[in-house]
Write a protein that binds this DNA or RNA. Structure first.
Ligand code: FES
Ligand code: FES
Lengths: 138, 138
DNA sequence: ACAAAATGATACAATTATAGTATCATATTA
DNA sequence: TAATATGATACTATAATTGTATCATTTTGT
C-alpha cells in the first residue's frame, strides 16, 4: 500500500542532489556513491528521466546528467507519473453487473474527492520545495 | 499504486450489503450471488471480518453473518488496516547512511502531512456514510 | 588511432504483494 | 443424520516492484 514507490523516490532524491550541486553535470557514478543506491537501478532511472525530458545527458569523460528543467518546475506528480503511471488511489470501478451501487456510488465519489486533493497536494511539491532553504530556485 | 486493494473493497461492499438488508443475518452464498465476487475469496474476507470483530457469524441453516458493530462505527480505515496493514503512503525512511537529508527531510515532512490528512479523511468514511440516504443509521 | 569514461538499449531475474482456489473440519438446524 | 452453513488452513497464480547484467555507442583526452 505504497503511494510512492522506490524508483520514484530514488528519482526524486537524484534530482534533488543534481539540483543542489554547484556543477551542472553529475555522473551516474557520483550519484551512486553519494546517494548509495543500487547502481544499475539508478542508471535505469536516470535514463528514464532523460528520455522523459527532465534530464539532459552527455556521454564520455566529464559527461553525466544535468537538469533539463528548473527544479521549481518538476513536481512530485511528474515523477510519479513516469515511474508509476497515472495516479489513482483506488480501482473502485467495477463492471455494472458486479455492483448494485455503481450508478450512484457514494464510496466512489468520496474516494475520488480525496484522490483529487491528494494529487493537488503532491503537485504542489516540487524539487526545489524539497531542497533546504537557500538552495531554492536554482 | 493502489491505496485500496480489492479485498478491502470487497469487504466494504459486503458490509454495505449486509447493513442494507432487512434481515440481520446474511449467508456467504447470498453475498456471493448478489455481489458477484469470487466465492472463496469473499469467504476468506468474511472470516477475517468475523475474527476482527466487525461481523458475528452463525453456522448451520439460516446462519451467516451479521454486523457486530453498527454501520456508523465502521470506518474505511478500520477495514483497510485489517486487509492492508497500517496506512503508509510512502516508505521514504531510509537508513541514515543512505540519505544526506534524513535528519531534516522536507520531502518526508510534506508526505507525512499529506498522509495525515488522507487518513483523517478516510477515517471519516463509514459504512453508513456510503449507504444511500434513507438507509443510514442502521 | 585508441583507451577510458561515460550513457543507451535491453533482456533477465528475484522478491514481494495481490488475488484467488481448494479442501477438510466443525457446528447448527430441521 | 443429512443439509447447510462457517472455521481453519494450505496452496496457487498473477502482477508489481525491485533490482542485475551485458553489450553497444558516443565523447573526450592522449
Ligand atoms: S461502484 Fe460498487 S459500491 Fe461503489
Ligand atoms: S530522508 Fe532522504 S530525501 Fe528524505
Amino acid at each position: 500500500m505504497k503511494l510512492i514507490t522506490r524508483n520514484t523516490d530514488y528519482a526524486v532524491r537524484a534530482l534533488c542532489y543534481i539540483a543542489e550541486q554547484k556543477q551542472e553535470v553529475i555522473s551516474g557514478d557520483q550519484l551512486v556513491k553519494s546517494l548509495e543506491m543500487p547502481r544499475s537501478f539508478l542508471r535505469k532511472i536516470l535514463q528514464t528521466l532523460n528520455k522523459e525530458g527532465f534530464l539532459n545527458s552527455s556521454k564520455g569523460k566529464g559527461g553525466g546528467f544535468a537538469l533539463a528543467v528548473s527544479a521549481g518546475e518538476i513536481t512530485l506528480t511528474d515523477v510519479m507519473k513516469i515511474f508509476q503511471g497515472p495516479i489513482r488511489l483506488s480501482e473502485h470501478k467495477f463492471k455494472k453487473s458486479d455492483c448494485p451501487y455503481i450508478s450512484d456510488c457514494l464510496l466512489k465519489k468520496k474516494i475520488d474527492e480525496i484522490e483529487k486533493e491528494v494529487i493537488a497536494k503532491l503537485k504542489a511539491i516540487t524539487i526545489s520545495s524539497i531542497l533546504k532553504k537557500g538552495d531554492k530556485g536554482k
